[in-house]
C-alpha cells in the first residue's frame, strides 16, 4: 500500500466522518431533550455529602471517576514510553542558543514556575487546576531550561524515570489500599477535613499530588526526547 492510496483512504474516511458528524449535530439539535440539568444538581449534592471538596470538578475527576483518571495516567505513561522507545538515542540539542540574558532569565524564572505548578497541584481541590495542569506547568519550567542551556543542561533521566514510576505506583497503591482498608477503590482512608481549607478532601489531594508528580516527570521526559531527538 503506497502513500497515495493511504492518503486517498484517509480523505475518504475524513469525508465520511465529517458528514456523519454534521448529520449527527443537525439531528441532535432538533431531537435532544437534555436531562443534564438534573445531573449537575445531584452531583453537587453527593459531592457535598461525601467528599468535602470545594471544587466539584476535582472530586469527579479523582474520586467518582478515579478509575478513569488512573486509565488516563496510564495512557500518558504508555504514549511517553512509546516516544522514549523510538527516540532514545539523543545526540545534540536542537536549540543550541547561548544567550546570557535568556540563561539568567531562566534561572530566575525556574523556581517561580515550579512554585506556581506546585500551587496549582496542591490547590486543585479548592480552585481550578489540579495534577494534570500543574504537572505540565512544572514541566514547562524544565523546557525553559532546555531552551536556555542547550547541551549543558541534562536533568538526570534516571531520577525522572524513577519519580514517574514511583508516583504511578503510589497512585495504584492508594487505590489498592482503598480496596483493602475501605470497601472500594480510592476509598476515603484519611479524614476529610472541612470544606474550603487546604487540608481537606482526604485521599483526593494525595491522588492529585501523585498525578501531578507523574505528569511533571513524564512531560519533562517527553520534551527532552523531542528536543534532543537525533535527526529523524
Amino acid at each position: 500500500m503506497n502513500l497515495k492510496r493511504t492518503l486517498a483512504l484517509s480523505h475518504l474516511l475524513t469525508g465520511l466522518l465529517v458528514s456523519v458528524m454534521i448529520i449527527a449535530l443537525l439531528g441532535t439539535l432538533r431531537l435532544l431533550t437534555p436531562p443534564i440539568d438534573t445531573i449537575g444538581e445531584t452531583l453537587l449534592h453527593i459531592n457535598a455529602q461525601s467528599t468535602q471538596v470545594a471544587n466539584a470538578v476535582t472530586s469527579v475527576v479523582t474520586y467518582f471517576r478515579g478509575l478513569d483518571t488512573l486509565g488516563e495516567v496510564s495512557i500518558l505513561f504508555l504514549s511517553i514510553f512509546g516516544v522514549a522507545l523510538h527516540m532514545q538515542h539523543s545526540t545534540r540539542n536542537l536549540f543550541g542558543a547561548h544567550d546570557t540574558l535568556l540563561q539568567i532569565g531562566a534561572q530566575v524564572l525556574f523556581p517561580l514556575i515550579v512554585l506556581f505548578g506546585v500551587y496549582i497541584i496542591t490547590h486543585g481541590h479548592l480552585s481550578p487546576g489540579g495534577g494534570f495542569q500543574g504537572g505540565v506547568i512544572i514541566a514547562s519550567a524544565f523546557v525553559l531550561r532546555f531552551l536556555a542551556y542547550g547541551d549543558h543542561y541534562e536533568p538526570s533521566a534516571r531520577l525522572l524515570t524513577l519519580s514517574e514510576s514511583l508516583s504511578g505506583a503510589g497512585l495504584v497503591l492508594l487505590g489498592v489500599l482503598g480496596l483493602l482498608l475501605g470497601d472500594r477503590i480510592f476509598a476515603q482512608i484519611l479524614s476529610l477535613g472541612t470544606m474550603g481549607t487546604l487540608l481537606s478532601g482526604g485521599v483526593i489531594e494525595l491522588v492529585y499530588l501523585f498525578v501531578g508528580l507523574k505528569v511533571a516527570a513524564e512531560m519533562t521526559l517527553l520534551s527532552q526526547h523531542f528536543i534532543k531527538a537525533r535527526d529523524v
Binding site: L94, G129, F132, Q133, V136, I137, S140, I227, A229
Partner: peptide, 23 residues
C-alpha cells in the same frame, strides 16, 4: 464556565502541543 478545562487547554493545547510542532 469550565475553568478547569480552559486551564488544561491553555497549558497543553497552546503550550506543549505547539512546542511539539515547533520541534
Amino acid at each position: 464556565s469550565a475553568p478547569d478545562v480552559a486551564l488544561t487547554e491553555a497549558v497543553i493545547g497552546a503550550g506543549v502541543g505547539a512546542l511539539v510542532f515547533v520541534v
